[in-house]
Computed example of a mutant assay.
Amino acid sequence: MLIVGLTGSIGMGKSTVAGLLRARGVPVFDADAEVHRLYAAEAAPLIEKAFPGTTSAGQVDRARLAAALAKDEGQFRKLEEIVHPLVHDAEQRFLNDAQRSGTAVAVLEIPLLLEVGRNEHVDVVVVVSAPAHHQRARVLERPGMTDDRLDALLARQLPDAEKRLRADFVVDTGGTFADTEAQVDAILTALKSKPAHAFVRDWQLP
């Protein structure tokens, strides 16, 4: 089974590309969605212990957590040490389920794939990209988003140009939806000839 890492900076269109892959029968694990689930479940008491006062009714209050993190950039590492192992376990279960079902290609959608070195544990890296003006316009349409907040988010991510250089494939979502579809279909065709090593090396459960 070939493992694809799907990534890209905020506002580039990862969710659109993930949706196109799912529509073509490719299973996709959404790391962001798993974090949201964890914040309302098993991660909440762990985060409350590390960051007192950041939960409410047994769930992480994202605004309170963001405020706690804003006080000290080093606190992000503490949060990652709590959340990342839980996400990894969920990814491993997802990939082993996909392997048992006979899936040829499985996708891990991880926004910070390159930033945290997760590209070493996939066979192929697909970066979703778009012109900077498209990206900024898309993100600023989100509720509560401001230019300053967007700039702070981008500062924690690799520049788009560097991500493109490190990609095996790039999907440019700056054009029409049909253009994006065509790029996804071309990549799926190209993946058929790619060697698969990551699952057995890094993910297979005993």
Rank of each mutant, 00 (worst) to 15 (best):
A70D: 09
P52I: 13
A33D: 14
R77Q: 14
T55A: 11
A63Q: 12
F51G: 02
L38G: 11
T54A: 12
L69H: 04
E34H: 07
T54I: 10
V28P: 00
R62M: 07
L21E: 02
A57V: 00
R37M: 04
A43V: 05
I47Y: 05
A43L: 07
S56P: 01
A31D: 03
G25D: 03
P27S: 07
K71I: 05
I47L: 11
E34C: 13
F29L: 12
V26K: 04
E48D: 14
E42V: 15
A33Y: 05
A41H: 14
G58K: 12
L21K: 04
S56A: 15
G53P: 05
F29P: 02
A41S: 15
D72M: 12
K49H: 10
R77C: 06
R62K: 15
L69C: 08
D72T: 07
D32H: 09
G74R: 00
T55S: 08
L46H: 08
K71Q: 14
A70K: 14
V28A: 01
A41K: 13
G25P: 04
G19R: 06
A67N: 10
K78S: 13
P45S: 13
I47C: 07
A44D: 01
G74E: 14
Q75G: 09
A67R: 15
P45D: 00
R64N: 00
F51E: 07
R64C: 01
S56Y: 13
K78G: 06
Q59A: 15
F76D: 03
D72K: 04
F51C: 05
G74F: 14
D32V: 03
E73M: 07
Q59M: 12
R22T: 15
R62A: 02
V35K: 09
G19E: 06
D32N: 06
H36Q: 11
G58Y: 11
D61R: 15
A43I: 02
R24K: 12
V26W: 02
A63F: 01
F76K: 03
L20A: 01
Q75P: 00
A18T: 02
V60T: 06
D72W: 13
A50Q: 07
A67W: 01
L38Y: 14
K78N: 08
L46K: 15
R64A: 14
A40N: 13
G58P: 03
E73V: 13
F29A: 06
I47E: 03
G58S: 04
R64K: 15
A31G: 04
L20Y: 02
D72G: 10
Y39E: 09
R64T: 02
Q75F: 03
G74P: 11
F76I: 04
